[in-house]
Amino acid sequence: MSALKRVQQWATFARIWHIYDATWQNPFKSAEVVKKFLMGLYKPIYHPLNDCGDHVIIINSGEIALPGDEWKKRVYFHHTGYPGGASWTLAWELHTKDPTMILKKAIYNSMDGNLQRRHTMQRLHIFPDANVPKSLLDNVSNQIRQLRPVPTRLDRYTAEEVASYPKLIDYPKDYIIR
């Protein structure tokens, strides 16, 4: 390795495009991960002023999974500014109105409230499904690893897979499954 190549780092100052699949992921834990890429916290040259953040495309935001009973318990507050203008929206209501909003708010709230935050949010592109414009998708060069693997639902397994799955016991012939 030559003396020059030893410290060569291509694309250190380039904006990289990442993609993240939000299917069955916790939006609040995902926000902590996505935030790092949006702000450039994963680069050893990070500095709050040097504008090294990247673009992140989040797909399938409609498929996020909230932990526990948070769909029913988590409340989003909004105030119009007029007297009596306060409103409280449950997470499931917000999600039916706009499937990108919960993730967007989670990421927005995970960052410190400074002047840079709104500009950082401009680099975030959230889509409720996998239909991403090709112009955006062409830029993507990295996929962010999901927090947890997406399990296959029991009714999505084929009959052969269920039949060939190893079993501890066979039910007796006369056993009635209720």
């Binding site: 916290l41 994963y42 680069k43 050893p44 040259i45 990070y46 500095h47």
Partner: peptide
Amino acid sequence: DLWETRIIAGVNE
């Protein structure tokens, strides 16, 4: 804090 952020970025690679 800044140095720690940078080192964490480095070691995570």
